[in-house]
Amino acid sequence: MSRRNLLRAALALGAVLSLSLGSPDTFAADPMGSGGKAPDFPKLRDMAGVEFDTEKDLKGKLTLVNFWATWCQPCMVEMKHLDRLHKAYKDKGFQVVSVSIDDARSKSMVKPIVKRNGYGFRVLYDTETQLVSVVNPAKTLPYNMLIGDDLTVLWTHLGYTPGDEVKMEEKIKANLPATLPASGN
C-alpha cells in the first residue's frame, strides 16, 4: 500500500475517531453514575440451588456484581480481592455477588474453585448467559457492576489489572448505605 493510501486510511480513522469522541465533555462524567437502574436479574440459582431474588437480595445493600468464568485467569486474581472487600464491609451493608458465566460443560469446576480459596461471597450460575447478556452483551471478563441500595448502577468496570481493587474499594467506601439493611448478609 502506498504512502498516499496510508494517509487516506489515517484520515478515515481520524474522521471516525473525531465523530465518535464528539465534544470533550463526552467523557467528562462516569456515565453509569448518572442514575441508570440496574436491569432485572433473571431467575438464577446459586451453588446450593437457591434462587436469587433481585428485590430481596439486592435492595437495601450496596452490591458488587462480579462476572467471571473458570477459564478467565485475571478473574482468578481479582476474586481474592473481592473476597477481602466482601468480608471487610459486609457488616456495613455491602456484599459481593459473584456470577459464573461458565457454560454447562465447566459447571462442575466452579464450586471447587470457590471452596479451595475459601471465598465467602454468594456465587450464582448464569449457564445460559441470561444475566450477562443484559448487562455486558460482549461477555468479556471480568466485569464488575456496583449497584446501590436503591438498585441504581453506580459504577462499572471491565477487565482487571492488579491495583484495580484500590479504586474499587474507594467506590465501595464512598457508597456504603447510610443505614444498614434489616437482615444480615
Partner: peptide, 13 residues
C-alpha cells in the same frame, strides 16, 4: 463514521 457515531455519547438516561 456513521456507525461509530451511534456509539458516541449515549448515556444511561
Amino acid at each position: 463514521g456513521a456507525l461509530a457515531m451511534v456509539g458516541a455519547p449515549a448515556y444511561a438516561l
